[in-house]
């Protein structure tokens, strides 16, 4: 893990939300963090360049901006795992795919602008692999107050 100096720590811990919508937002946010406008801009730039932050800006809610997202899981026989991962990942609609330690050992997220496309991709994967895809669309989302503390 990268060593974080006090400035970096203040940014990561203090600025995971609530960035001001004002003409000089870095100046205004910096005031609360005890940093000057330019220190904050440089500090954020360094954290983005080092990969400590994925980016700095709006976190868009994929579904609310017109896309549809669905989690899905498959039980893939061990000897076919790599080949099936390739078949699944070949679909551009697969945003994330994780191997997990369970009988359902492949978990992926299908995302598309059109919700009907999700069902089509799932049907295509079932056809290509001959394996059942268990769709797990969210029935309800609970608010999370998560903040990474470093």
């Amino acid at each position: 893990m990268a060593f974080l100096d006090p400035t970096a720590r203040a940014i990561v811990n203090g600025l995971q939300g609530g960035f001001p919508l004002t003409p000089r937002p870095f100046r205004d946010a910096g005031r609360d963090l005890g940093l000057s406008e330019d220190e904050l801009i440089e500090g954020i730039g360094a954290l983005v360049d080092s990969g400590t932050l994925s980016r700095f800006g709006p976190l868009w809610n994929a579904e609310q901006i017109g896309g549809a997202v669905c989690l899905a899981a498959m039980a893939v026989p061990a000897e076919r795992f790599e080949a099936v991962a390739e078949q699944v990942n070949a679909h551009p609609e697969i945003a994330h795919n994780y191997e997990r330690a369970h009988q359902l050992n492949m978990w992926f997220v299908v995302s598309a602008d059109d919700p009907r496309r999700i069902n089509q991709v799932i049907a295509d994967i079932e056809q290509e692999t001959g394996l059942k895809v268990h769709a797990m669309p969210k029935a309800r989302e609970f608010f999370v107050g998560f903040r990474v503390e470093v």
Binding site: M1, V12, Q16, L59, Q64, V148
Partner: peptide
């Protein structure tokens, strides 16, 4: 409206040791 969840630093969990 919730189309933006929040605006700010979006941490890379892996890089931070999580």
């Amino acid at each position: 409206d919730g189309a933006i969840r929040r605006i700010g630093a979006i941490p890379n969990h892996y890089a931070l040791g999580f």
